[in-house]
Design a protein around this nucleic acid. Structure first.
Lengths: 168, 168
DNA sequence: CCTATCATGTAATCCGTTACATGATTAT
DNA sequence: ATAATCATGTAACGGATTACATGATAGG
């Protein structure tokens, strides 16, 4: 049994396995794309390596299909559930950094107008996506995803305001 | 002469070297802390390895102090200046992802109230820092840093609004 | 003087990205 | 049938973080 460090990627995998039950890496890929993916994407390769890593430390268990492609299938274990629960219950004061490429350029003297035009377009497109997702969310969905979406929308709006003003 | 890929880290180093002239890694560390650091921090070790990497591809040149500690000193070259300029002139439609740890927890079902309390506090503290930096910025400063700060402030406000509402 | 803290750097590890590959399905 | 795309994985690489270390300087 290995000791591993749990990263955000780990919790995404654990969270999805808890929600969806036994899943293959490819199924996880689909799940990410349709959920957390709107604010936290993962490379598909990570959805093969990360469950493997989690399995090596007992947070998930692995079986293989007997027939056909013999896909690997992962299930969250009690240990995994406990780790997820602990993480979830620990409120964090951590803050992500902005790390916006366009802001870096702005900082180092890029032409604000040209930048702003591209950024307004990109942010508007993303805002539209978010709103589309929100409007198509089934009502019986748990509240977390909707709330996460909501802060995304707020931040997008703030960004659009900023870049629009900058363009003048 | 190596071929290397230029990352955001590379442009931060190049941008600071252009601004400040010949600098040691430690001086770069101080520069980052007092400038871009408010929205994009770097590990101090990167300020030793990254200039090295840039030197291997001719974007910066390296000398050493003759006396005392024999620190390494880096200067941006014409090639470096050109790369920086090209990057700066290329408007980007790239958007950073939110990747906020607290939002991930929210997404996966953490208690919104408890999370919100911690997040409001953290975001308020950061907002205060931003405002302090802004208010102490010398007037003759180039506009980029001030504008970058401004979007940071907007985003913080949006986040605070969101978490405050969530706490009710 | 002694001890924190600042200054300066190197080395190892590891996660995440990129590249490579090939087996199934679907569409035309 | 054949091409295109989806599904499924492995391997290599590299940048970023973490850990380790030691020399200078300042405060008590």
């Amino acid at each position: 049994m290995q000791e591993i460090r749990l990263t955000p990627t780990s919790y995404i995998v654990l969270g999805l396995l808890e929600f969806a039950g036994e899943s293959s890496p490819y199924a996880l890929k689909q799940l990410v794309a349709g959920s957390v993916g709107y604010f936290w994407t993962l490379q598909h390769a990570q959805l093969y390596t990360e469950p493997e890593r989690l399995a090596s430390a007992g947070y998930v268990s692995e079986t293989r299909e007997e027939t056909g492609r013999r896909r690997r299938l992962y299930t969250i274990t009690d240990r995994g559930r406990a780790a997820l629960e602990e993480w979830r219950n620990e409120p964090t004061g951590d803050l992500a950094e902005l790390r916006e490429p366009a802001v870096l350029k702005l900082f180092f003297g890029a032409d604000p107008k040209r930048l702003a035009i591209a950024q307004v377009a990109a942010n508007r497109a993303r805002l539209a996506e978010y709103q589309a997702i929100r409007d198509s969310m089934p009502a019986e969905m748990p509240p977390g995803p909707r709330q996460a979406l909501e802060i995304g929308i707020r931040v997008e709006r703030a960004a659009i305001d900023f870049w629009e003003e900058l363009a003048d």
